Simulated scan of single mutants.
Amino acid sequence: MIRRPSKVVAVHLNYRCRAAERGKTPEFPSYFLKPPSSVTTSGVLARPAGTRLLGFEGEIALVLGTTATRVDPADGWRHVAAVTAANDFGIYDMRAADGGSNVRSKGADGFLPVGPRLIDAGLVSPGRLRIRTWLNGVPVQQATTEQMLFDFGYLIADLSQTLTLEPGDIVLTGTPAGASVAVPGDEVEVEVDDPTAAGPVTSGRLATRITAGSHPYRIGARPHTDPALERLAWGEGRVPGGIDG
């Protein structure tokens, strides 16, 4: 069972394929926070009224089992109790509103489905996990942790220099190439597994169906898009001819 964590920390670029897709490779990881209230399970997600660019990002989520403070990279993995699937949803239309903090774009209630099952960290090799994402049943993302720029132990150690990671906290470890936009009527599924394991070791498919929301932004910043932002959200070569409103 996924309980509400004290915090959720997400890394930006962490797969070589995603770095190549974005045209930049970081020297070290950078992070942002998602509110605990964004955490949910499989179900329905309403795209806020007045927005068009609801991005999905399949990710491997680490669930902390023991407190980590200033740990070494070699010891980082032992603080992880479980891994599972996550979908780091965000509204590109609101990216510019918060100067990089992602509060409006990625912090909304329900914008972090996680699950459906936890995989015991003791049953898997952290370097052999696989992340896959499907959009309406069509595979759109696939990568293994061998393709990460910064492994799990490094991420835990790096974060623990700045903040104490506590039991139940979630660390999102980045998304591979292929993340794009979901529109009302779409279903996005994410699964984490270990294809090298002797038996089935899987999170199960984390399914989210997108609907059209009825609540627009009425106060403060308003949604904004432009051609460059649409290309970034959809991915080069995937911007449809007529994006719905």
Rank of each mutant, 00 (worst) to 15 (best):
P184L: 11
A19S: 11
R70S: 12
S101F: 10
V183T: 15
E59T: 07
R222F: 10
D226I: 10
Q161A: 15
I2M: 14
E191N: 06
T211Y: 08
T196H: 14
G245A: 14
T208E: 01
L64G: 12
E230N: 01
G235F: 04
S37I: 15
V71C: 08
A121N: 05
I131N: 03
W134H: 14
V192F: 01
G107Q: 00
M94G: 05
V181W: 03
Y31P: 02
G168W: 14
D169Y: 10
T145E: 07
V44H: 02
R18I: 07
R130H: 02
A197I: 06
Y154L: 11
L165H: 14
E230A: 09
C17W: 07
D120S: 11
A86T: 07
S203M: 10
A10M: 07
G90H: 02
V39D: 08
V103T: 15
N87P: 02
A97P: 02
V11L: 11
V188E: 00
L149E: 00
D109P: 11
L62I: 00
E191H: 07
T67F: 10
G55M: 11
S101I: 09
A19I: 02
R47F: 08
Y92G: 01
R132V: 12
T225H: 09
W234T: 04
A20N: 13
R18N: 04
I170W: 09
S38G: 11
I91C: 05
A97L: 01
R95W: 13
D151E: 06
T25V: 12
A177N: 01
E189C: 15
Y15M: 04
I91E: 06
V124K: 05
G50I: 07
G245V: 15
A61F: 08
N87Q: 05
F152W: 14
M94R: 03
D120Q: 10
T40Y: 07
F28R: 14
V181P: 04
A108S: 09
R117T: 12
E187W: 10
G237E: 10
T196A: 15
T145I: 03
P223N: 05
H12A: 15
L53V: 00
I2N: 11
Y154D: 03
P35S: 13
D72T: 14
V114Q: 04
V9Y: 07
A143H: 06
V192I: 10
R117S: 15
R18T: 06
S6Q: 13
V114Y: 08
I91T: 08
S6V: 13
A177W: 04
V192C: 00
L64N: 12
A108E: 04
A182T: 06
F152P: 05
G213P: 03
